[in-house]
Design a binder for these strands. Structure first.
Lengths: 179, 179
DNA sequence: GGCTCCATGTAAGTTGTTACATGATTCA
DNA sequence: TGAATCATGTAACAACTTACATGGAGCC
């Protein structure tokens, strides 16, 4: 199961609450692993009863109480074991390619609209990643071990956005001349 | 739901049996939409009772009987309606990026092994796509409307493999010098 | 005699999505 | 005064995975 590993990896960096994790899954880690808060809270309870993580309840004044989870030694051992396993490259499921497959039967102008919007989204994403790069990885020589990994994750994110951006542009060109 | 559309799109090309569809989902369409035969047979029954497709039973000598499904007018209308909807870019869920995120805590030599294997897989995939390209799309000028769509789907597949291939190579280089 | 291809299914379990719910605090 | 943030959950459903099952045909 992927989500459990994603959570363990996050917690290996620092102890977090379910709420914090949910936020993380909407930005940094979320760039390559998506999860909702419902999934996260459920999984936290599972990992907790399995002994991979431990939660400390922390009452707060003026705020609902929260539970901060951290890795146990068992959890740490689990990550190490998991990291040795082979991971199949992810399968792509992209609706827009499905539409292209049947181009003859489909509303052409809508497709152009969608491709244009996607091109913009990829450009925005790319700009965001570049901003993160310049802020956090300005000096790649001085990155620590975990820094390199995060740099590489960001790097493939950028390459992916750039590739899709270019493809959208070329697809639009081709659709235009093949009118 | 995605699978139903994937099936409808396949059937818009030609009538097929569940078995044929399952094969298609392991090669051509399978490059951007994966499904097992169990899912497919279930979905075919659903689509059939919903009236989007119709199956003709065809008894065979020396072979088990088969059911050939084809689109109904309702089904065709459904595709057209669906094709106008916006499709969010696919979310990536890649285990290997998860591992990178936590590089400090992880078995480095195993990671190198995995990246090397992945690089090979991407190279193989790319070669396969290039072969398909030269066989089926040798002359892109003369493609019909549906041909362009399929060409573009193949094109993004090739770009994707090439991008990942290069990323693997660069990641291996970086991990090597950052030893 | 075993392997792959044809052709279709059931059943159980896991994962992911969507809708709904609560309730206080802080900021504009 | 209303929206966003903090913090956590239940419930129903949809989608996907994995294991198991059947049985003949043709090939090496």
């Amino acid at each position: 199961m992927g989500l459990s590993h994603a959570i363990l990896v996050c917690l290996s960096e620092e102890p977090l609450t379910g709420y914090d994790l949910a936020k993380k899954f909407e930005s940094s880690v979320g760039f390559f692993w998506h999860a909702t808060h419902q999934q996260i809270y459920l999984e936290l309870r599972r990992l907790s009863t399995a002994g991979a993580i431990a939660g400390r309840a922390q009452p707060q004044s003026r705020r609902p109480a929260k539970t901060i989870y951290e890795l146990t030694d068992t959890g740490r051992a689990q990550i190490r074991a998991w990291s040795r396993n082979w991971a199949d490259p992810p399968a792509i499921k992209d609706d827009i390619l499905l539409r292209l497959y049947d181009l003859a039967d489909i509303d052409r102008s809508k497709l152009v609209e969608h491709l244009t919007r996607r091109r913009e989204m990829h450009a925005e994403r790319l700009a965001l990643y570049e901003k993160i790069l310049s802020r956090k990885f300005a000096d790649p020589e001085r990155l620590g071990a975990s820094g390199i990994g995060r740099y590489l994750a960001l790097d493939i994110g950028m390459r992916s956005e750039r590739m899709r951006l270019e493809w959208c542009a070329d697809a639009l060109k081709l659709l235009d001349i093949a009118e």
